[in-house]
Simulated assay, not measured.
Amino acid sequence: MKKVIQIVLIAGVMLFECASSAYAIGSIGGSNNQANQQHILGNGEIIHKPLVLTKYNIVSVSKGIIVNINSSQDQKNEIIAESNIANLVQITIKAEKLTISVKSNSSIYPTKPIIVNLNAENLSNLQAQNSATINVKSPVKT
């Protein structure tokens, strides 16, 4: 009886370990109900991608992105990120709200910070979610 219990217990542990490993591999590889999700590891090659933006007075950022805001009329806005990740940073403006996030169905694993540098004169609200950071480098009119 003891040997049967030991065999069942060992088989249960092995089954659990196999299932756990398969889940972890599936999470990285994109299966496990994530067939359409991109998993991108940063390649370490930093690029500066210029942004052309229309009028906004609210900034909302998420997913660990760092936003630096300067008070300036200068229209030099940019994304600084790894070359294989920069195009996955999504910038949208609706009703004068600038939203900065990672494209849906994308899981990114940057090896360097994702930085968005903005120049803005008048802002009414700043919103940071999911480990995002907003740094205001110089006074901005509100």
Rank of each mutant, 00 (worst) to 15 (best):
K97N: 10
L41I: 07
S62D: 07
L9T: 13
S107T: 08
S71H: 10
A24P: 00
A132C: 08
D74Q: 13
A35Q: 15
C18I: 14
F16I: 13
P50W: 04
I91R: 01
E45M: 03
G12R: 05
K94Y: 07
T92L: 04
N33P: 00
V52F: 10
Q34A: 15
N43Y: 06
G30A: 04
G42P: 07
G30T: 02
L53H: 10
S72T: 05
S72P: 04
S20C: 06
S83R: 08
L88N: 14
M14Y: 05
L126N: 00
I5Q: 11
K2R: 10
T142E: 06
M14F: 15
S62Q: 11
S131V: 03
G29K: 03
I47V: 15
K55A: 15
S83H: 04
V102S: 07
Y23K: 09
L53N: 11
I5L: 14
N57I: 08
I25N: 08
A95C: 02
N84T: 03
N68K: 14
E96L: 14
S60A: 13
I46C: 01
S27N: 11
V4L: 12
L126Q: 00
L9F: 14
N119V: 12
A22D: 07
K137V: 07
C18G: 13
C18A: 14
A128C: 06
S21M: 09
L88W: 11
V136E: 04
V13R: 02
S60H: 06
T92C: 11
K63P: 00
A35G: 09
L118P: 01
H39E: 03
I100M: 04
A86M: 08
I91C: 03
I65G: 06
Y23Q: 09
L118V: 04
S20R: 06
N84R: 11
S20K: 06
Q73P: 09
Q90G: 05
N33W: 08
K112V: 00
I115N: 04
V89S: 05
T133Y: 05
I79K: 01
Q129R: 06
Q90H: 09
S107A: 12
I91G: 01
I85P: 01
A132G: 02
E121H: 04
V67N: 00
G64S: 07
T54M: 12
A95D: 15
T142A: 13
S71A: 15
M14E: 05
E121N: 12
A19W: 02
A24E: 11
Q37A: 12
E82W: 02
I58P: 01
G64I: 01
E96A: 13
E78D: 09
Q37S: 08
N117T: 09
